[in-house]
């Protein structure tokens, strides 16, 4: 197009356009205006802290002084190799600083177990709620959320009471005469952490799975039966695939935060139950090495993000979501 063809004002050729442009701009401004409170909160509560973490991870701490000159030392230390081999659970690590890597793998495994346990517990509950409960659904949902009326900390503590040395299980078994001395393997180990995490998160997962089940058009189920499916087959071929996106979303809602959890491991995990979050917490507090803590938590975030994205890509999550959207 030559310069002569270009109209001086856009309105010269398309009379409708300028007006539409301004109204669209106004709409965009309106949208931004409506979003701004949330944006400000997100920026100040999420983006800024993460930014601070990134900056801090390039600093170093020596004794009581914080060296704010830019360096990759923390990352170098995390990924440094060593001749000395560290053995853990049959795996060999040739790392100069193997603790974060080991704790990361352990945390991922424990979170994964907790997530699987949560989904296995929550799915039947959600199914019952969506398909069996005909009346008073709201009441059932409220009953499910009752554990959430107390704080997370109290719920974790309550497991201490159940699993502890003088706890409910031990005293129950002793009063029944089944054991002579309290069982010590119940508390302060990875299993206790997994149990506690599962219980703490189950209701968070019931609701999203319930929504994805509730969304399934009942006539689909009737159609499947009409086409010869037994109840079980129909579940496998219709209900399960259609509720999969919601279930996966719910599972990620458990997996992602529990990897970094440090409260539960500290309270019920003992020394054997520590996770990566506990290390970060210690680096920031007891070990007084906040820059290293920042580096560890950033690497943890990136690893989790990479794992989740790889997982979702492998199972074709976005396609699945698009297909079951309607």
């Amino acid at each position: 197009m030559s310069s002569q063809d270009t109209p001086k004002t856009p309105g010269a050729t398309a009379p409708g356009r300028p007006r539409r442009d301004t109204s669209r701009r106004r709409e965009a401004l309106n949208g931004l205006g409506l979003l701004s409170p949330a944006l400000i909160v997100m920026l100040s509560m999420l983006a800024l802290p993460v930014g601070a973490l990134v900056v801090m991870s390039f600093w170093t701490q020596s004794g009581f002084t914080l060296d704010t000159s830019f360096t990759l030392d923390n990352y170098r230390r995390l990924f440094s190799t060593s001749e000395r081999a560290t053995e853990w659970m049959g795996m060999t690590f040739h790392l100069g600083y193997p603790v974060p890597a080991i704790l990361m793998i352990k945390s991922l495994a424990m979170s994964l177990m907790a997530t699987v346990a949560v989904v296995l517990l929550a799915y039947p509950m959600a199914y019952f709620l969506a398909f069996r409960v005909k009346r008073n659904k709201a009441a059932w949902i409220i009953i499910l959320t009752i554990p959430f009326w107390t704080s997370y900390l109290l719920r974790v503590f309550s497991w201490k009471v159940v699993l502890g040395y003088n706890g409910a299980i031990n005293s129950g078994l002793m009063s029944l005469g089944l054991i002579d001395a309290p069982l010590e393997f119940l508390l302060y180990n990875p299993a206790a952490v997994v149990i506690t995490l599962s219980h703490a998160w189950v209701a968070f997962v019931v609701l999203p799975i319930y929504v994805s089940l509730e969304k399934i058009d009942r006539s689909m189920l009737e159609a499947a039966s009409d086409l010869g499916d037994s109840k079980f087959k129909r579940f496998r071929r219709i209900v399960l695939p259609l509720s999969m996106p919601g279930t996966i979303t719910a599972a990620l809602m458990v997996f992602i935060p529990t990897v970094g959890d440090y409260v539960t491991p500290q309270l019920v995990g003992g020394t054997g139950g520590t996770m990566i979050g506990s290390l970060v917490q210690q680096l920031f507090t007891k070990q007084n090495n906040a820059p290293m803590g920042a580096a560890v938590s950033l690497v943890m975030m990136l690893i989790i993000a990479a794992l989740v994205l790889t997982f979702l890509t492998l199972i074709g999550y976005w396609k699945m979501r698009a297909r079951s959207a309607r």
Binding site: D217, S219, M220, E222, A223, A224, S225, D226, L227, G228, D229, S230, R237, I238, P241, L242, M320, R323, S324, A325, R326
Partner: peptide
């Protein structure tokens, strides 16, 4: 229903959204 010699076309069609045309038709 799965044992009756009847089949139904539903008012909402009840097309299975996670399957393609061929898989829908071949479902039964």
């Amino acid at each position: 229903p799965e044992k009756r010699p009847t089949n139904m076309v539903f008012q909402s069609y009840a097309i299975f959204p996670h399957l393609n045309v061929e898989e829908n038709i071949g479902y039964g």
